[in-house]
Design a protein around this nucleic acid. Structure first.
Length: 489
RNA sequence: GGUCGCGUGGCCGAGUGGCUUAGGCAACGGUCUGCAAAACCGUGUACAGCGGUUCGAAUCCGCUCGCGACCUCCA
């Protein structure tokens, strides 16, 4: 299996050639959502970034197993309500079962991800379905001496771990700095060191999500599920682990420590982190409350939104920035993406109308090569898209007859655009296949044919009236050389 | 406070030593049109500031200013 793909590895802080541990198989684990609220724009970014990678790796011929978890056990909210997890909290608020919350938001997450045209992961494990496995890993870490039990809770012993291994290598932190900077949180006296983290936490009486274990009735620590489920489904060593940049520390750092402490192996070869979406320069996040849910994006129902943005516009917007850069949300930027996406699809429609000639006056190889080079360069989709637009210019020249293309090249060109735009970038033309009612279409066509006649008779008063009135109803009329086109806005 | 990152033309957003006019949107001009719209073609403006290294820096180094991320749940 040959490829020229390089990806940026957070571990080395460099772009590295992508070489799977066990080709042609590739194991990829991505941190999924905690299902306690509607998915927002921020959730779309890793989903789309790693969907792109999933699609591209498959195109390259790899057999990819893509695992993305659903966190439904809940994490500690903070020390003020220690012992209460965020899912249980929401459940009490709404007077429903915790698993009902999980089901509800998992469903809406899946719906949103389908709207964004992301492929389903190969496996989507729930943390709650892997309590036994998590307890097993706790035992293993205890047995290896990197954890200690206090009052029914089990904590990871970072100081001890750091004597043999390197805690902080992913995020570039040093234990001394952590010691100096970790806040002294109340109720943490159980821990040897404030930076130790829970592997198993004893549940307080009011805590409704709990499972029996040899230490206590409780629940697993919040870093554990990813170590456990990635190991279970991808093995002790696997290729790619992805997630949002905000998970780098402490979540992924702790994952590394847990896996190493349990198995003695470095589980992950390539760590990948997508950057965050900002709004007015600030991170969009649940905790800051400045987020826009995906449902709101698609419906326009949020005060920050001037209009609705379709799922493909959101996807294209995200792909127009490199995944390791922050991306600032604004209506202007989204509107620019909307127009750009229209131009891209319009170009592809034009491509279908081109008639082949005997000879080709153009050479598309350059654009093709550059496109794949961009993709291979750590998934540089903004560059890739720029090349696609360069190609659109050529397509228009072919259509106008300023350039020519032969049959073979034309087929090749069409296949290239379909491959990149539909299969790899995962975009789809939403206007296509949006069938309106046949009778309705006939009626509009009838009106426009009357208008055409009026125009022929130079009765512009009537023709303009029909155009303007249709416009008021949201039907945009576009005159063509011999006839018309129309669309519903 | 500690660690890390960023600051590109009206906006978004690539590029990281010498030609990339990156690209998109907007703006302006044109073609088309009865007029429009749409579409297409064409055009301009940039690298936060100061200093240094270099034949040459948006790109490397230093300082200053501004912004952000992580250190607490987060995609």
């Amino acid at each position: 299996m040959k490829n020229n793909l390089t990806i940026y590895n957070t571990l080395s802080r460099k772009k590295e050639k992508f070489e799977p541990i066990n080709p042609p198989f590739v194991g990829m684990y991505v941190c999924g959502p905690t299902v306690y609220g509607d998915a927002h724009l921020g959730h779309a970014r890793p989903a789309i970034t790693f969907d792109l990678l999933f699609r591209y790796l498959k195109y390259l011929g790899y057999k990819v197993r893509y695992v993305r978890n659903i966190t439904d056990v809940g994490h500690l909210v903070n020390d003020a309500d220690e012992g209460e997890d965020k899912i249980a909290k929401k459940a009490k608020l709404e007077q429903v079962e915790p698993m009902e919350i999980v089901q509800k938001y998992a469903n809406s997450y899946h719906r949103n991800m389908a709207q964004l045209n992301t492929l389903s992961p190969s496996i989507e494990p729930h943390a709650s379905g892997h309590i036994i496995e998590q307890a097993e890993m706790v035992k293993q870490i205890l047995k290896n001496g990197y954890a200690y039990e206090v009052n029914g809770s089990v904590y990871f012993d970072i100081e001890k771990y750091n004597k043999k291994y390197n805690y902080g290598k992913l995020s570039g932190r040093k234990l001394e700095d952590l010691t100096a900077n970790t806040r002294e949180l109340a109720g943490q006296s159980e821990k040897k060191n404030p930076f130790d983290f829970a592997l198993w936490k004893k549940a307080e009486p009011e805590h409704i999500m709990r499972w029996p274990s040899e230490w206590s009735d409780g629940f697993p620590g919040w870093h554990l599920e990813c170590s456990v489920m990635s190991t279970k489904y991808l093995g002790e060593k696997f290729d790619i682990h992805g997630g949002g940049l905000d998970l780098q520390f402490p979540h992924h750092e702790c994952e590394i420590a847990q896996s190493k402490a349990a198995t003695g192996e470095d589980a992950v070869k390539y760590w990948m982190h997508n950057n965050l979406i900002t709004i007015e320069g600030q991170k969009m996040s649940k905790s800051l409350g400045n987020f826009i849910t995906l449902d709101e994006m698609f419906s326009g129902e949020n005060d920050l939104l001037e209009q609705a943005y379709s799922p493909m516009v959101v996807r294209f917007f995200i792909l127009q920035a490199h995944y390791r850069s922050t991306l600032d949300f604004s209506n202007k930027a989204l509107q620019a993406s909307e127009k750009g996406l229209q131009r891209l699809f319009k170009g592809m429609e034009t491509l279908d109308k081109i008639k082949p000639s005997k000879e080709s006056s153009i050479n598309f190889k350059d654009i093709k090569d550059k496109s794949f080079n961009a993709l291979n360069d750590d998934l540089n989709t903004p560059i890739l898209i720029a090349h696609l637009f360069d190609g659109i210019k050529i397509i228009n020249q072919l259509y106008s007859g300023d350039e020519t293309i032969n049959d073979t090249d034309l087929t090749d060109l069409k296949n290239f655009y379909k491959l990149i735009v539909f299969d790899i970038l995962g975009l789809k033309n939403e206007n296509k296949g949006q069938k309106t009612d046949n009778k309705f279409e006939e009626v509009v066509n009838l009106l426009l044919n009357i208008r055409l006649e009026a125009k022929k008779n130079k009765d512009f008063e009537t023709s303009d009236k029909i155009r303007d009135e249709l416009n008021k109803l949201g039907i945009v009329v576009k005159d063509k050389k011999d006839g018309f086109e129309w669309e519903i806005q």
